[in-house]
Every structure is written in C-alpha cells, then in structure tokens.
Design a protein around this nucleic acid. Structure first.
Lengths: 345, 345
DNA sequence: CCCGCATTATGAAACGATTCAATCCGCCCG
DNA sequence: CGGGCGGATTGAATCGTTTCATAATGCGGG
C-alpha cells in the first residue's frame, strides 16, 4: 500500500535517501537512517519488486524448468541448485513442464517476459524449443541445459555421459555372468534413454542377447508392465538381468517380479539408473548407475551465474560428468545357475 | 532489448496503439494492427513483465510454497493447483521450504516484495510465520493454507480431517483383529501427525495396546529405523500392525521388515497415509488412508482465486475433506493367528 | 577568513508498460 | 452545408524504484 514516497514524507527526507537507506545504508548518516527505518517500520513498508526489477533490468531469481517433478531425481538436482543459489541470496523458482512440450513453450514464453536472472532447463526434446531458448540467451538471460547436449552447438550444458552409463551397466551384468540381458525403457526420442541403451548394446558380444522392452515413459507403472512381460517369458529364454531406463522403472520391475514369485536377483537381476534414494531403500536394495544429482544442479547454477556476470565475454562450456556403478543386492552374485530359472505364476 | 516505443516508431504509430494491439486487439483497425504486428515480429519484441506488473499492480502467477517437494504427496497436490490455474492462464511457481522455518521466512519475505496473485502454503509450523502471512493478506494477496488450521482464526484453508483419518485407521486394524498396534511417526509438533495419532488412540479400547514409535521426520529412512525397532521387539509383545505417519514411513517399514524376514501382512500389517502412487506400487501393495490430493490443490486454488477477485467482500472459508481407507494387501486378513508371530532376523 | 573537500541529502530522469481523456477524421442526417 | 456521432488514434500521466548529477552543509587548513 505504502510506497517509498510515503516513507520519505513520514521520515522527512527525500525518496533518494530512503532508497539509500535500503541499498547503501552506510552512506547515510546514522540518525537519518534511524528515522527512515522507524518510518519504514511504522508504515509496514515493503519494497515493490516489480518496480525494483524494472529499474534494475535484472531479477534476483533463477528459474528451473523441471522435466518431471514426480521423479525424485529432479528434486535432488534442485537441492544442488538451491545450495548454489543460497550463496548469492538468490531465489529459486521451480516450474514443471511435465514432459509436455506445449506447457514448456508457455513457460518459456512467460520467462521471456519475466526475465529471470537465468534459466536451468531439461528440455522436453532435443530440437523442441531451440529457437525460444536462443531468444532468451540473446536477451541476456543465460540458459544452462541439463542435458546430454553434445549435439547442440551453443549454450552451456551439464550432463552425465549416458553412453558410458549404459556401458558400465553392460560390463557389470556381463561380469556377473548374465548372457541374456533386457533393456526396459523409452521413449527413445529422449536422448538419455537412447544413449543408455546404446551404451549397453555396445558392450555386448555376439553370443549375448539383448531384449529391448520399449516403454512409453519412465515411471513405476510402465516398469510394472515391463516386469509383467519379463515374468511371462518362458524361463528358458527369459533374460536373467534387466537394465532399466531409470530407477522408477526398476522399482516397478522389482515389485512386479517379486509379486509374481520371481526372486531378485536369483531369478532376474535388476539394475537401475539415477540412484535415487528410493533405490537403496527398496525391498531388494537396487543396484544402480549413479548420477551426481546435487552436483549436477550445483554446477549448472554456478555456470549460469558465471555467464550472468561475465556477460558477452562468457565462454560457453559443456561439463560432462561420469556416472558410476553402485552395487547393491539386486545384482548380487546369483545363488543358482543363471539358466535354471524357476517357474513363475 | 526493444521496448514498446521502438515498436511504435517502426510501425509509425503511438505507444498507446501498440499497447492496444497487445491488449484489446479488436479496438484497433485491422491494417494498423497488421503493421504493428509486423513491427513486433521484425524487432522480436517481447513485453516486459516487470513494467506490466508494476503498472497493473497485480501479477498473473500464483506461488506455491511446498513443505517438502521430496514427498510425492505435494507433487500431486501441485497437479491440482496447475489444473485450476490453467483455466485462467495463470502460471504456477513452486518454492520449496524443505521444512525449514528460516527458509520459509525468506521465501515469504520475497513473495511480499514480488506480490503474486496469491499464495498457497503448508506452513512449517502452526504459529511460525503467522504475522508474515497476515501481512500478505493485508496487502491484498490472498493466502490459502493447506493445513488443518481450525485453530487459526482467519484466512482460507483446505485440509483433510486427520483425526478422522487416524480413527479410520484404528477401526480398520481392530476389525482385522489386531490388538497390539503401533504408531510410527513424528514430530508431534506437526499438527497433522499429532491428529493422526490421536485419532488412532481415540478408538482403541482398554484391552488394546498402542506403542508409539516417535520419529524425527516422515521419510523412508526414518521409516526403516521404525521397522528395525519393530523387528527387534520380542514376537510375543510385538505389535501386529503399524499405522504410519505417512506412506514414505510405511514404505521404509515395509522394506525393513521384509529384509529382516518378517512377512507383511502375516507377521505385521502396515497401514500408510496419503495413498501416494508408490503405495499401490510397493512390493506388498500398501493399504493407506487416502487424501484427495489433486482435489486439495484444486480447491485451494479456486478459493484463492475467488478471494483475489472478490477483494474485501470475500468471506474466508475452511474446507475439510474426508479421508478414506484404501484396502490393499498390507493389511489383508492374516493367514496365521495374530498372536503367533514368527521368529525374525 | 576564506577556500576546498568530504560527507549527506536532494530531486529529477529514467525503466517500460497501461490507461484515459482528448483529438482527429470521415460520414450521416437534418 | 454544418453539426454531431462514433470509431481510431494519440500522448501524457502514472506505477515505485534506483541512480546520478547537483546542492547543501560542516570542517580543517592555508
């Protein structure tokens, strides 16, 4: 209700002085400052953010556009972002694109008008909002992608080497003696998923079989359908190990297999991706390919702030993290022969 | 970079006309409009949100301050909010207080400056930011609490009757023949948790025992410690059923019990709260007390918008939803005698 | 005793959009 | 032929800050 003008009037000073009290308190005389502060308290004055930002041209909030907040992976990334933002007293605001390209488009449009300090985003798909993102950048709003975006020519990005992740998965499962391996995941238009599968496929030799179980999405529900398909395969040809597109899928597969009487890892081993907290906490603790989730968010934020400060002198960078295997029970050494699968449901 | 003035110059019209093209397109002559639109396209002009909001005084975004984004419950509530917001083309921005009162305070401070259209919040604790919330309201920003806030005298709120939820839980477990029941949850400074426990305690009779396992927080990890405690109790006095403060705890309990060789529900039944998707998808599908999550968010948003439109003529309301029992396997009828618990660990 | 400097305070000019009273213009009708 | 009407357009005022050149004040030194 009350503006800086009111405060000035009540304190008997000019608006400039009030502004100084707010922004450079030590360039105003102590007693004047006290008078102004008293007026502020008396009126319950609060700065108007819009006016402030209009004048300043830049905001103090950074926007995160998450692909799917229902996936704990993004929540962890978010912690990293918040940690980095806290240092500079920046506010983090989160938007959820829910894997919906239209929604994403609307959000970006809004952000273009709002002009946050920077944007961190996992785009719904590769080409999608390419030009809209470019427009943000050309307006001086740094954009950092959480994305394996080596194919994108410009802009900063942080990512995890998903091909390597897939490879680690494959090597681990082979080493455990598995020869029939399944990959459960999709859609393959999502780069990460494609890469994980390709990494896995790349390390398999001729005498090993790879069964791909395509899924329309990566969540617990689709994981269960994958589990169902696996359980229904004849034991003689059933894969002895499943590498899942992410941990949600792995959880679904685990739950379905368990319910149908198949033992994990004895009958079927399961390997997830992301290493979310639920993975370690599952009924059978899940082995998983860990992504440095908080660090991903942290690094992206730092890069973004760098770009925001350096302005045009900024050099874009791509930081690629290495994933690592976390071994738990779900891929432990088998107690029975790999081939001797038991009857199920 | 380019403002409305540039556009006006390029199109050869006044700024007022450009503004009209943007806001009331049909009160400007078609050919003028086309000229303006062309200029806009040519310059890549985008409205400046801050200026817009400064002038308008009100924003088109609603702020949600979630208590804990890591709990899928809030993500579901969020969907409800987004659904309601979409109708009016409003943007939803999410903030995470992470159960941290300081963080919450900083967020509210920031929101006071930013002046969103409205605020939906689950406060960290009852008394906490009371006056800060009041200040928002007195500034004309409607605040709706997701909270059983019957004790709060003013402001709108939506909530679920947690005492009833606890009662439903108790009645169900008794009906299933359980006489030794545990409640796992905390902290009891959180109203919801307190109410759930009290509801449960209220329906138990003298010959039934209630063991409270206090937890510092409601998540999978604390759930596991609760599970551990239960597993280590002597079978003769061990509770035959656990009612958990929420589903995350229930998942933790389930996983720990399962790993220690106790069967669910035969040795110990488990009942959760919230009915998040993970509950139905657990290795042993969890019975749970369902809260209408999306509807909670939806209703809160509608109430908030109502208040935003009606202004001072608005009558605050408290909407209390009824929770309901969802029966699944984790509290199914026991195959063995309730007293005859098996050896564990 | 006066000048100049340091310290404070001032107020007008932005920032970019919206709004609204005023103006303009063409046309119809008396 | 002129008044009036209505649709289209204008441009100045406004929102609340921040900034910056300028002014005022006080004080010490030459």
């Amino acid at each position: 209700m009350s503006s800086i003008k009111e405060v000035a009037r009540v304190a008997g000073v000019s608006v400039g002085t009030v502004s100084n009290v707010l922004n450079r308190p030590d360039m105003v005389a102590p007693e004047t400052r006290d008078r102004v502060l008293a007026a502020i308290a008396q009126l319950g004055y609060v700065r108007n953010g819009s006016a402030r930002q209009l004048r300043a041209g830049r905001s103090r909030t950074i926007a995160v556009v998450a692909l799917d907040l229902a996936n704990p992976f993004f929540i962890d990334v978010l912690s990293g972002v918040e940690a980095a933002a806290q240092r500079d007293k920046l506010t983090v605001m989160v938007f959820n694109s829910s894997k919906d390209a239209d929604r994403e488009a609307r959000l970006l449009e809004m952000l273009e008008e709002q002009r946050p300090l920077g944007v961190l985003i996992t785009p719904v798909n590769d080409r999608g909002q390419r030009e809209r993102l470019d427009r943000l950048v050309s307006r001086g709003i740094p954009v950092v992608l959480f994305d394996n975006s080596s194919r994108l020519s410009h802009g900063c990005a942080v990512a995890v080497d998903d091909v390597l992740g897939g490879r680690l998965a494959g090597l681990h499962l082979r080493e455990r003696g598995h020869r029939r391996i399944a990959f459960a995941g999709g859609p393959f238009t999502v780069r990460q998923v494609e890469d994980r599968r390709d990494g896995l496929a790349g390390v398999l030799t001729a005498d090993e079989t790879l069964t791909v179980i395509p899924l329309p999405d990566l969540n617990v529900a689709t994981g269960r359908t994958a589990g169902q398909k696996i359980a229904e395969m004849p034991p003689a040809t059933r894969p002895t190990a499943v590498f899942c597109g992410n941990d949600l899928v792995a959880l679904g597969v685990l739950q379905e297999l368990t319910q149908r009487g198949l033992r994990v890892p004895d009958d079927v081993a399961i390997l997830g991706y992301d290493d979310i907290d639920f993975a370690a906490a599952a009924a059978v603790p899940l082995s998983s390919i860990r992504q440095p989730r908080e660090q991903l968010g942290h690094t992206a934020t730092v890069m973004m702030l760098e770009e925001a400060n350096q302005g045009s002198r900024h050099q874009h960078r791509h930081v690629i993290f290495q994933p690592e295997l976390v071994e738990r029970t779900s891929t432990a050494a088998m107690r029975t022969e790999p081939k001797a699968a038991e009857a199920a449901t």
